[in-house]
Amino acid sequence: MSESLLEVIDLKKHFRQRRGLFANLRGAEGVIPAVDGVSFYLKEQETVGLVGESGCGKTTVGKTILGLTGATSGKVIFAGHEITAMGGEPLRALRSSMQMIFQDLDAGLNPKMRIEQILREALTVHHRPSDAECARRIHELLDQVKLKSNKLSQYPHELSGGEKRRIGLARVLAVGPRFIVADEPTSALDVSIQAQVVNLLRDLQQDLALSFLFISHDLRIVELMSHKVAVMYLGKIVEMGVSERISHRPAHPYTRVLWTSLVEKQNREAQPAAASGAWGVFDFERPSAGCRFAPRCPVYQAAGRPAICTDAASEPPLRELSSGHYCACHFPLS
């Protein structure tokens, strides 16, 4: 582990559930383990992709890493600082080197402020540049995100989705971060715009020596962007490794299911009935005990429901299958 910029050690975040009348009637638990023991590290100028379906806790991981929500337990160490033990002014000062891009295109774009005011504010949060310096930087930022300077006098609601994303990016870059958590940066955009933004993010990473935690449900884009990929399922990382490995020779049945569903959706010749028997999954279900994925797992079904998969005492740990390739499954695919 040479020179890791970010280290996440057994991070847990449990939300207390508001117990409404309906929740009580259904006998729901009082605690939701959104993130349930996540560990990984990220090196300087590296991109780690975090994939998973909605509700798997990937966004919460991103927010907890940046100290936007407190962790229940575990550690996050960023550039030698233990984020999980920090607060107040020191944490605020550290935000000049770590930033977040939100899925919501409007996040951070105050609807009552002009674009120029938004960028100026971001430039002056951590530094005290002169007016001339500020103006120079604003134009530099617009250049970096490939926008024309006539946008400066406009308000956020006058911008298109792609332009909003670029301004959001410029706002984040204005503080000069080394590390950015990008939470679904393309999912709210049209396909043609998505490609522009992906290209832009890759350029920026090169030019500004950035490190990314790239959170997305889109496997193709994650694979394209990332060096390493971690796959999350219900609060846990179930597989992690080099991106080519994860997408082409996955070991965890869930990763495989994610991939096949992407291909199946488009494949005209797919045999629906046969497909659901082989690599299909059932609709979302909460785990009872043991492996979280067992209720939906095709391997578990095919192997005749082995007891070890649902044994409460033996939830599969994340084991190293080969160098740098980790998988949490009793029956990894080869």
Binding site: S96, F102, D106, N110, K112, A122, H126, R171, V172
Partner: peptide
């Protein structure tokens, strides 16, 4: 709900600026 406050915190704005400027004055 709209991630507005989180985005301001993430940028590193001090709490008093977020409350006085973004919440009270603008909104």
């Amino acid at each position: 709900e709209k991630n507005f406050i989180e985005a301001a915190v993430a940028l590193g704005l001090p709490t008093r600026t977020i409350i006085a400027k973004h919440i009270l004055w603008y909104n």
